[in-house]
Design a binder for these strands. Sequence first.
DNA 1: TAAAGTAGGTACTTAAAAGTAACCACGACG
DNA 2: CGTCGTGGTTACTTTTAAGTACCTACTTTA
Lengths: 128, 128
Amino acid sequence: MSSAQKSAAQKSEDVRHECPVDAVLRLLMGPWTTYILYVLRTQGPRRFGELKREVGGISAKVLTERLRMLEEARLVHRDYQATIPPQVTYSLAPRGAELNPMLDALKDIALRWQTEDAQAARPRQAAE
Amino acid sequence: MSSAQKSAAQKSEDVRHECPVDAVLRLLMGPWTTYILYVLRTQGPRRFGELKREVGGISAKVLTERLRMLEEARLVHRDYQATIPPQVTYSLAPRGAELNPMLDALKDIALRWQTEDAQAARPRQAAE
DNA sequence: TAAAGTAGGTACTTAAAAGTAACCACGACG
DNA sequence: CGTCGTGGTTACTTTTAAGTACCTACTTTA
């Protein structure tokens, strides 16, 4: 964020009222966020440890950060069972599901571009 | 990016083949990117200086970075006229336009959530 | 002659994000 | 008794991105 945005954010609530799209994109940005949502979307509710293993390579710190952020944004739901050992299950909240059509549209575009770029990168394949 | 992703990226081309969505999101992430696309989408083709003034607060360095990135991703088109002084005009490329439906859907969600959150934040408004 | 506008490039600094490693309580298991 | 697994937290380090300031070359204008 720029200093201009920062100072503006101190006066009003947040500069992103000019661009709410940014606020949502900020949720999806980090290196692991879409992975986490993808696992929850496709595999269903998951515990912390399962999530950590399935995402593969993520640290507990970052996973916690992401989950806290997604929870605060109400994209995921956190279910804490104070058993011994404690069981914490994360699931996709209704708001998370609201993103599905948009993410699917984005996925279509992304796959199409990927294919186009791959073909443009190696036209030699056509001759072989 | 994690070290696990990095080492994987050295073996294959890029880890993002697992998640092309990430690749597209990475284009839209930076603090100013959606602003720039927004200006180009709504105001039409713009010169570098115009863009810099209209975005408001962005530095020439970051604007250049973003435009180069968007140009490489073929979301914007760069038209360089070697006049004195040189005129460089940026416009939305076809691929940039392909994002429109998705961005509009994202905007709908973002606006809805913003409204919901604002109402949830101050329920006192209902009593007044 | 000096400033302003054209479209950036370069060097340096700073701030934020990500990664790494160690640690906690607790109980089961060997 | 020591380690594993639960779900994290904390402190520290590294990496990356962003910001700031100054520079180019050329022309027009005051």
